[in-house]
Design a protein around this nucleic acid. Sequence first.
DNA 1: CTTAGCCATTCCACTTGTGGCATGCATCGT
DNA 2: ACGATGCATGCCACAAGTGGAATGGCTAAG
Lengths: 201, 201
Amino acid sequence: MKLESILLGVLARHPSTGYDLKKYLDTHGRFLRSNTQMSQVYRSLGKMEASGWVIHTVQQRAGATDAKTYRITDEGMTVFLDWLTGPYSPPTRFQDPDFGTRLAFAGFMTREQLLRLIDIELTARHEQVARYRFRDRREAVDTSAAFDEDLATLVAEWSHEAGAQAIDAYLERLETLRRVLLDAPENAKAPDLLLLLRDAR
Amino acid sequence: MKLESILLGVLARHPSTGYDLKKYLDTHGRFLRSNTQMSQVYRSLGKMEASGWVIHTVQQRAGATDAKTYRITDEGMTVFLDWLTGPYSPPTRFQDPDFGTRLAFAGFMTREQLLRLIDIELTARHEQVARYRFRDRREAVDTSAAFDEDLATLVAEWSHEAGAQAIDAYLERLETLRRVLLDAPENAKAPDLLLLLRDAR
DNA sequence: CTTAGCCATTCCACTTGTGGCATGCATCGT
DNA sequence: ACGATGCATGCCACAAGTGGAATGGCTAAG
């Protein structure tokens, strides 16, 4: 479902071949998914076609393998939009791409839907910070093999600080986006929005 | 292999039941993996036992379900250490837990091994930044359905900036850790290391 | 001329992960 | 007294992802 959502999102913007989609995942979409296999893309495409979410037409390429251009169907569009604007439950790791994937297709949302999504993410992460930030991080030890406690402590401390800083920065940035979306006039165009974003930092 | 590596790492520090391991994944290990299912933990444990990487002993708990305490075998320790210090290829997304998972078990590494790992990560990410930072981010458009270009542009710009800032901060923090590891005297103890870390910020 | 890389798809055998169900006792708060 | 939560395991069907091989033409650089 997750790869499929991405593929549907791309196809909702323009028809593509399997190869194109793989290229998207390796370039523009590289933060949405790590190391996606060709085979996985083609298999998803096949499954989606069987479900009636996409259809393909064949492009002959003299000599070479025929290329199949996939386009999204109305049904596929419905499925995609249902996923995009449907319920979102934040994964444990804020670094996971679930939220970012939805953002990548923000253009298909209304400003209200986008704000709702952001609010869900924000409350979930704030709650997480509140629950864990000052929690004891020591772990029970009883190590048999060679284990460098000093090294482990250093790295654990660094990891915790790095994680805390990362999530704090993340929350701050998200709040900024939220602010811009709330403050911007209803009919603001892209250049003005970008200016607002710059000022809000 | 990935869940198994984590479980082996935990078991390398102390014996645990399946339930304990799941709890670890939900608390201390929450940044290593999102939403792990109980069934997945028990299945991995079963498979690892079949491979001879772990063994279990049964704890009777009057009335309640017996608890199985798993401990790592020598073979399991070898497998774990091979994974930990073996070749690491950075995933596309720097937010993926692969690197962090290894760091979580830094205590089982020597300082040199840890530094090698950090150097691999650092070069890979620097290279990524160099390749993509100033790349054109515009995507070909040909959207049929309702698509708010202005909203999409705003969010895309925000995402890019957020991503850039996140990876920059990440690189900086990693460099700091690297510095501390390089500069610290061979026999430095945890409190001194933490002081160095604090000063290095 | 040759090698490398891009374009393009498909198949296959696995391995992993998801989500839910079933069981059953103990403890703690209301 | 009741319900939630924690402890503890296991089974199942199904969905998704991994990693590699096979095929074959095109183009550009060395």
